[in-house]
Amino acid sequence: MKKDNEIRIAGFGGQGIILAGYIIGKAAAIYDDKFSTLIQSFGPEARGSSCAAQVIISESQILYPYIVKPNIAMLMSKDAYERFGGELTDGDIMLIEKDLVQPKKNGKKISVYAIPATRLAEEMGRKIVTNIIMVGFFSAITQITSYEATRKAVESSVPPGTQELNLKAFETGYNYGKKLLSSSEKNVA
């Protein structure tokens, strides 16, 4: 049996963390025909500075609903990195917002991929699409959700009238990821 993918997505409020988790989960469950469960953080932590979502993607029904040990982390703030960065172990993948997270070496063999998502979004004129750029980046790097499925999930999850902008953001993140992979410009933290 293939091991489940346990994905931690974290950042601060307003970055669209939950929507990013929703789109990734939806891409897997609806368009890639796998099983996925999304759990988001509620309560004080969801309203303050930090915000987190957890997505499990599996080939079979998910029985235990929470992440036990993430193998992928998408971290979009320094606080998120400090809180969750340590959960990863050898062979895991970390995706980070390049300008907001400065990873430290910790001796583990983790593949770290960085993207200046906020800056790219600002260059598009809309900072609000930072999360969608990260989603595109996630799909390109991890290939856990396919290009087609993730693109469809973006299209069907964003408010009407914003599809074009969001799909452009998705492509931006996806292409950045593909380019990064071909230049193998990854760091091992």
Binding site: Y22, G25, A29, I30, F35, S36, T37, L38, Q40
Partner: peptide, 9 residues
Amino acid sequence: ECVGHMTEK
């Protein structure tokens, strides 16, 4: 709460 707040297909 767990079933209420979990998102699935």
